[in-house]
């Protein structure tokens, strides 16, 4: 037996060993979630891989077995055949159409159930009341507005552990995507629209977040921190923002929104009333403020498909029906 045949397998084994050694002790947030959403999403991944293995493992075994056994040099297996010796094998065909189909059927049920269960818009089941955080993606930083607490922060979103956080998100920048992999999946954020995400941390800790959609030169500087703390620590943090007494007026917001990247964490107090809604509406409204927003919404834009102007939902537009 030619030892050279074994070289590729040895190389693969060596690579696998090196990988395992490297990963031991490494941090893989997606595989080590710190919140129920991430954990559920990971379960979906694992079930999928296991189901696929039912097909993939036989494929690998057969590939290498056939390649070895029926290689031209192995004269022992030579079968004398005319061109048509191998009639279509309907048994084999049935198996390899139906078995994958059955697996896909399981995966279909999984897709249906998990898409509903893990809908980003679905509020999380919890005894604690949700904390609302409004998120604005800017060039190239994240602004977090806490309407109930009356504070705001840049590049740091702090919240109590074991409390569901209800995010309302928009952008005043190109399309972005809000992602904290330790806690769960991402959601795209777009200017002029509002979307939602619900996440929760199962314990205290610092989790890194980023933007997962390119939005311009400084996009790599959009890393932020999501910090889960105890309730008292959270209250103290809110108080510290108020004490810093930097009001987030519309003018202060406009200054903040100017392009900058790798911004340090900063805290604001007293964000303007309805600042979040104003930011959204400014994109959607024509520049000449002469328009009467209310009238126009009812007449010319009666049923922005799926997009209610007040709490602009970012659901997929349904086929348009014109208003009567």
């Amino acid at each position: 037996m030619n030892w050279r045949y074994l070289l590729p397998y040895a190389a693969i084994l060596a690579l696998a060993a090196a990988t395992a050694w490297y990963l031991h002790g490494a941090s893989l947030p997606v595989l080590d979630p710190k919140g129920p959403v991430g954990a559920a999403e990971l379960r979906v991944m694992i079930i999928t891989v296991l189901l696929c293995a039912i097909v993939v493992v036989p494929v690998f075994i057969l590939l290498f077995y056939f390649a070895w056994k029926y290689r031209a040099g192995n004269t022992a297996t030579h079968v004398d055949h005319s061109p048509d010796w191998d009639h279509d094998n309907w048994v084999a065909e049935t198996i390899w159409w139906l078995v994958p189909a059955a697996i896909i059927a399981f995966l279909a049920v999984l897709a249906w159930q998990s898409s509903y269960a893990l809908d980003p818009y679905k509020p999380l089941a919890s005894a604690a009341p949700p904390l609302t955080v409004q998120v604005v993606a800017l060039d190239w930083k994240w602004l977090f507005i806490y309407p109930e607490q009356g504070i705001a922060s840049v590049n740091l979103v702090e919240f109590p552990a074991d409390v569901p956080v209800h995010f309302e998100l928009t952008a005043d920048a190109p399309m972005n995507s809000f992602w904290v992999p330790s806690l769960g999946g991402q959601i795209m954020v777009m200017p002029g629209m509002e979307t939602q995400l619900n996440l929760m941390a199962s314990g205290v800790g610092d989790f890194s977040g980023s933007s997962a959609n390119i939005s311009g030169d400084g996009f790599s500087g959009m890393a932020f921190t999501a910090r889960a703390v105890t309730q008292s620590e959270f209250d103290a943090w809110v108080q510290s923002a108020k004490d810093a007494a930097r009001p987030l007026t519309l003018d202060a917001y406009d200054a903040l929104a100017k392009p900058s990247s790798y911004d340090p964490v900063s805290l604001y107090a007293a964000p303007d009333e309805n600042l979040f809604e104003t930011i959204i509406d400014r994109v959607m409204m024509p520049a000449d403020g002469a328009m009467d927003m209310n009238n126009d919404m009812n007449m010319d834009m009666p049923s922005m498909p799926g997009m209610d102007m007040h709490s602009m939902d970012m659901r997929m537009p349904m086929p348009v029906t014109t208003a009567p």
């Binding site: 979906v44 991944m45 891989v49 897709a111 998990s114 999946g185 959609n213």
Partner: peptide, 16 residues
Amino acid sequence: GVVLAEPPADYQLHNS
């Protein structure tokens, strides 16, 4: 690809 085809899995792994 099949993993990514499950929407909740994709919520994590999209654009990664």
